[in-house]
Design a protein around this nucleic acid. Structure first.
Length: 802
RNA sequence: GCCAUGGUGGCGGAAUGGUAUACGCGCGCGACUCAAAAUCGCGUUCCCGCAAGGGAUUGAGGGUUCAAGUCCCUCCCAUGGCACCA
């Protein structure tokens, strides 16, 4: 029979759809398994190999879980708001809503051609009013619970995208979307208080089955640091302030104090003194420098003396106060006491000839060398100042607690915890996003749009020219609507929300099945959350994956959900590159899956992607290897449609079959698809050698194949006379007794080198095996002298030492 | 600089401390064919050898062990992440 993958795949996709076997009844499910992949952005570039590499193996894992008896639900949707559609509109004049709808349609068609078991009845599209009314509802909840707030602050601004960005989206000083260097601007913007959840976000990580790497990245991003806040006074001025110090071990070595240029205290320090002019000029110069681009580490730090001193409470002398370019106003208190122990402080002091001291005997010999000419504290017995119980030779960490206790005891300061995590800046000066549901009264005071007015519709009478102002300011309809509903002189908020807000809760909306009254039914949420397995790229570690956790925690606090964490298990698929480079339109090295699917079929294409190498490691694209899978698929088809000719298989075949069941089961469970496929290849090779197979074994093979090549497996299942769909069958069990072969090949080593092989019965005794091994002619050649040691590893090898 | 992961044939890669190089690609030879493609069979880590067999080999060097790709130490290289956070 001629083998035509396209025809087979079309046939089964239609049958699956007609039978609605992938539509999950959320209420009836007994043993829920929520399988989720990060939903795609509906771009004009359509589905690419990266999507396939993410979705197809995820589908194989989900199919496997279904055959294992779970009630599996795998939804699909579109993260449809965002810049590309808007930029496309600017170029082409086509409204983003139109292009997005077209792209969604195309991608749905492509996704259906993949043949994954998506439950399309639960699809979401974040750019539709039915969806974004919940994005707005979420904002209102955040506003009501005082997590959403507006403030003027220095923020990241992308000059190319003409919008502000969250810290997470400007991580290396460049825009996450376009790579342009971001600049700092002082703007009045909406923030969500994610920083309030910092400790919980940190604590929650430890119970998650996530890649260690991802957890570490979030930990670093949250950046917990414990230290001490010192209360200090400016000498000759009635000004008090706090200084944060995360290494209080060195407090006695501090010789100067630095303050951030944009700290409000700076002008007060120099006001009316001869230092005022140069210091304020310095501040202005640094401000301009930061405006041009985010500061780079390589840039040398600069500073200027303010003429003021800290009235040092520790009695180690007054510390001169410097304004210094490397100090951050929004971390700690924006003021730092410095010593020789910090590399940067050390370099700064050297540059400006500020005296240095060191505390304790440094553990680091290089530092000891560098500062050997400076005064050393804590040295016993001639130490100048001694902290009780801090002894010479103690390590940094050992002395830390005692010094902290000492400082707190003396009343110099209190223990404080600081986080690096900043509040999430959610406003964007762009069109294609969910409007922020806020209106301003004629005095400019913000008011939430009442829930009954949701969805607060995105106006359509807007031209898409980037002006640096929010495009919504152009909409007459938007302004008229606001005045009509709220009164003369009222204006709407013109900014839209970050698209990461839309994606921070979409996994809940899949479960809502279009419910217009509730975000999600609490009983269904309780049953189905957290997501059982979430698969997506690692690039979201400190963006989507942290926002989603935060939103879930907030929703729990508000009483809408019962779980704190959205994703119990997380897996990152690897990256598929082309000639070593990331695939991108600009590089022109994007591989389109469509023609490959056309030529080889969805089954072969997905199996090839899985066979390339370990799922989490990705790899470099090459289409030469797909031939091997093509052959494999054809050979399977030939074998099980025309060589099912035996009543019973030999014990050797049975043993191989059961070993294969074991291996494929364990491999798919651990997402090792590559070795699962190679195990099936080995079994097929054996069956071909045998010249045929029993119907029983053919059926079992088909079941094992079902998660990996779902269409082909259905076809074979049907032709083998199986009842129902193969995907609805139970996953085969292996019999441990049958996995054992009746004879073993034993390797014989002499002095660690392989010298021969013998075949023995499985039940052979150690003595029999050893004597047979020693009788092997080639082994005898090397048994020169007395055998000192004999090791027998049952069923595997004999090791002789002479 | 710091943290993490990795380094195995011509290539993708496989290997609970127990026969390194499974499986696949590619390549070589053969069968089928007028011929080619497809398909099938045999071979394929490297070196010596007609063969039997021997020697070498998992980034480099040491160590533990009857036995090390795997465990320990030192180093080299690659990839990813972090890096003015005091």
């Amino acid at each position: 029979m001629e083998f035509d993958p396209s025809a087979i795949e079309a046939k089964w996709q239609q049958k699956w759809e007609e039978a609605k076997i992938f539509e999950t009844d959320l209420k009836k499910a007994k043993d829920p398994f929520y399988s989720l992949v990060m939903f795609p952005y509906p771009s004009g570039d359509k589905l690419h190999v990266g999507h396939w590499y993410n979705f197809a193996p995820a589908d194989s894992a989900a199919r496997f879980m279904r055959m294992k008896g779970k009630d599996v639900m795998t939804p699909m949707g579109f993260d449809a708001f965002g810049l590309p559609a808007e930029n496309y509109a600017i170029k082409s004049g086509i409204h983003p809503d139109t292009s997005t709808r077209t792209n969604v349609q195309t991608m749905v068609k492509q996704l259906k051609r993949m043949g994954c078991m998506y439950d399309w009845s639960k699809m979401v599209n974040t750019s539709t009013p039915e969806y974004y009314r919940w994005t707005q509802w979420l904002f209102l909840q955040m506003y009501e619970h005082k997590i959403a707030y507006k403030k003027e602050a220095p923020v990241n601004f992308c000059p190319s995208c003409q919008t502000v960005l969250a810290n997470e989206q400007a991580q290396d000083g460049t825009c996450d979307r376009c790579g342009t260097t971001v600049i700092q601007k002082n703007l009045n913007q909406w923030f969500w208080k994610i920083s309030q959840f910092a400790q919980r976000l940190l604590d929650g990580l430890k119970d998650l089955a996530w890649p260690a790497k991802t957890k570490i990245m979030q930990e670093n991003w949250i950046g917990r640091s414990e230290g001490i806040n010192f209360q200090e006074r400016v000498k000759d001025l009635n000004i008090e302030f706090e200084v944060y110090d995360s290494i209080p071990q060195t407090f006695l070595a501090q010789t100067f104090t630095v303050i951030a240029p944009d700290h409000p205290l700076v002008s007060k320090l120099v006001s009316g003194t001869s230092y005022e002019k140069p210091v304020m000029e310095f501040v202005e110069r640094i401000r301009k420098k930061k405006l041009a681009a985010k500061f780079k580490i390589e840039e040398e730090s600069e500073g200027i003396f303010t003429g003021r001193y800290v009235d040092n409470p520790f009695g180690t002398g007054d510390l001169p106060i410097w304004v210094c370019s490397y100090v951050l106003a929004d971390y700690g208190t924006g003021i730092v006491n410095c010593s020789a122990h910090d590399e940067r402080d050390f370099a700064f002091a050297k540059k400006y000839d500020i005296p240095l001291k060191i505390a304790l005997l440094p553990q680091d010999p290089a530092l000891a060398e560098k500062v050997k000419n400076f005064e050393v504290f804590y040295r016993e017995p001639d130490g100048i100042i001694q902290v009780p119980e801090v002894a010479l030779g103690m390590t940094w960490e050992q002395s830390r607690k005692r010094i902290i206790d000492y400082i707190e005891g003396k009343g110099y300061g209190q223990v404080r915890v600081h986080f690096r995590l900043r509040d999430w800046l959610i406003s964007r000066q762009r069109y294609w996003g969910a409007p922020i549901p806020i209106v301003y009264d004629p005095e400019g005071k913000p008011h939430p749009v009442p829930e009954k007015h949701l969805p607060w519709l995105l106006p359509t009478d807007v031209a898409f020219k980037p002006t640096g102002k929010s495009p919504l300011t152009e909409s007459k309809e938007f302004i008229e609507r606001t005045e009509k509903l709220f009164g003369k002189g009222w204006t709407p908020e013109f900014d839209t929300m970050d698209t990461f807000v839309c994606s921070s809760y979409y996994y809940l909306r899949y479960l809502a099945e279009g419910d217009e009254k509730h975000l999600v039914d609490p009983t269904i949420e309780k049953r189905w959350m957290p997501v059982s397995m979430y698969i997506g790229g690692p690039e979201h570690a400190c963006m989507h994956l942290i926002y989603a956790r935060f939103v879930m925690m907030a929703l729990k606090d508000f009483g809408f959900v019962s779980h704190e964490e959205p994703f119990k298990k997380l897996v990152h698929q690897g990256l598929i590159t082309n000639k070593g480079a990331k695939m991108s339109k600009s590089k022109g090295n994007v591989v389109s899956p469509d023609s490959l699917v056309e030529r080889h079929g969805s089954d072969a294409f997905r199996m090839y992607l899985m066979f390339m190498g370990p799922f989490t490691e990705g790899g470099d694209w090459s289409d030469t290897g797909i031939k091997g899978i093509d052959r494999f698929v054809k050979r399977i088809h030939a074998m099980f449609t025309s060589n099912v000719n035996k009543k019973v298989d030999q014990s050797q075949v049975l043993a191989s079959l059961h070993r294969t069941i074991k291996k494929v089961t364990e491999d798919i469970e651990a997402l090792r698809f590559n070795t699962a496929i190679s195990a099936l290849m080995e079994l097929l090779n054996l069956l071909e050698q045998e010249g045929g197979v029993s119907s029983e074994t053919a059926k079992t093979f088909t079941l094992l194949l079902a998660p990996l090549a779902p269409h082909l497996a259905e076809e074979l299942w049907e032709s083998l006379g199986g009842k129902g769909f193969v995907i609805e069958q139970r996953w085969p069990m292996f019999d441990p007794k049958l996995t054992k072969a009746s004879t073993h090949i034993i390797a014989i080593q002499v002095n660690g080198k392989l010298r021969g092989e013998i075949e023995v019965d499985a039940g052979a005794s150690k003595e029999d095996v050893l004597s047979k091994a020693k009788a092997h002619p080639n082994v005898q050649k090397f048994l020169t002298g007395e055998v000192k040691k004999e090791i027998y590893v049952a069923g595997k090898l004999v090791s002789l030492v002479v």
